[in-house]
């Protein structure tokens, strides 16, 4: 028995060291991607192609989820607020929760599972089928030609997707509370407008979504590039992308929120 405990402890230690190791490799890879971004910025067509796959194809899920999240917020907020007779504040509730938190966070989570996993699978498959090696043998750097455009496309689309999510959410809340339930339209908007501040709420939400975009795409391209070149390797990497991104998004959200809203409001 003690032997088993020792080996368990060894196992844990081994895994910790392994994770730190991977983090180091990932950071070096991230810097490499940044250094080799010149090509994708000069030949912007490469990025536009990837914008289509990461941004445009994520639109539907973002729009639909945003609408529903906003509608649920509206319903729940109305139920709670009407007990205190302040149901006109439902606009404030919907807008603030979306712009500050739910917009960037939920959009980033959806983005990680829709676009992030696709990026990982694509790069991993290109590696498994030796397309990356072939590119290297053709004197074309795969990081500059394949990884960097995907990275920048992800970084660019994330803030847009988060903004679209928030707008759809506010619209969903408006739909449920004003159109269906009949909360006064004027006070819905005016309460929202007097409570939501451009710099503190909208700009901070925007900054958050930028951070999330960088984090999710960096994880996605790294997991793809680092995937073992087999079918199991690629599927494992895809799962890891979604799990790691989700955890990083939530952790990062806490840190950013603590920085941004500390002692304010």
């Amino acid at each position: 028995m003690p032997n088993r405990i020792v080996s368990n402890i060894q196992n844990i230690g081994h895994r910790v060291i392994e994770s730190v190791w991977r983090l180091g490799v990932a950071s070096r890879f991230f810097i490499l991607v940044l250094l080799k971004s010149g090509t994708s910025l000069r030949r912007f067509n490469l990025v536009i192609r990837e914008l289509y796959f990461t941004g445009v194809l994520s639109l539907i899920i973002i729009v639909v989820s945003g609408l529903f999240v906003g509608m649920v917020l509206g319903l729940q907020g109305y139920e709670t607020l009407q007990k205190y007779g302040s149901e006109s504040a439902v606009g404030t509730l919907v807008a603030l929760s979306l712009v500050r938190e739910l917009g960037p966070v939920v959009a980033a989570l959806l983005f990680a599972s829709r676009a992030g996993s696709a990026i990982t699978a694509e790069i991993g498959l290109m590696k498994a089928t030796e397309q990356l090696a072939a590119m290297g043998m053709m004197a074309v750097d795969p990081i500059a030609r394949v990884v960097a455009p995907r990275f920048w496309a992800g970084v660019i689309s994330m803030p847009f997707l988060a903004a679209i999510f928030s707008v759809m959410g506010v619209f969903g809340g408006y739909l449920v509370t004003v159109v269906f339930i009949g909360v006064d339209e004027g006070s819905f908007w005016s309460q929202m407008q007097s409570a939501v501040d451009f710099r503190f709420d909208i700009l901070n939400g925007f900054i958050k979504s930028c951070f999330f975009g960088v984090a999710v795409t960096a994880i996605a391209v790294f997991e793809g590039y680092d995937a073992p070149p087999t079918a199991e390797g690629v599927s494992g990497a895809t799962t890891r992308t979604v799990v790691t991104s989700s955890l990083v998004i939530l952790g990062l959200d806490f840190i950013l929120t603590a920085f941004m809203f500390r002692g304010v409001g």
Partner: peptide, 16 residues
């Protein structure tokens, strides 16, 4: 130097 070399991979490795 690699521009003077070509390589054919096992299954072709065409860009899909």
């Amino acid at each position: 130097l690699r521009r003077k070399m070509g390589m054919l991979f096992q299954f072709g490795a065409l860009f899909t």
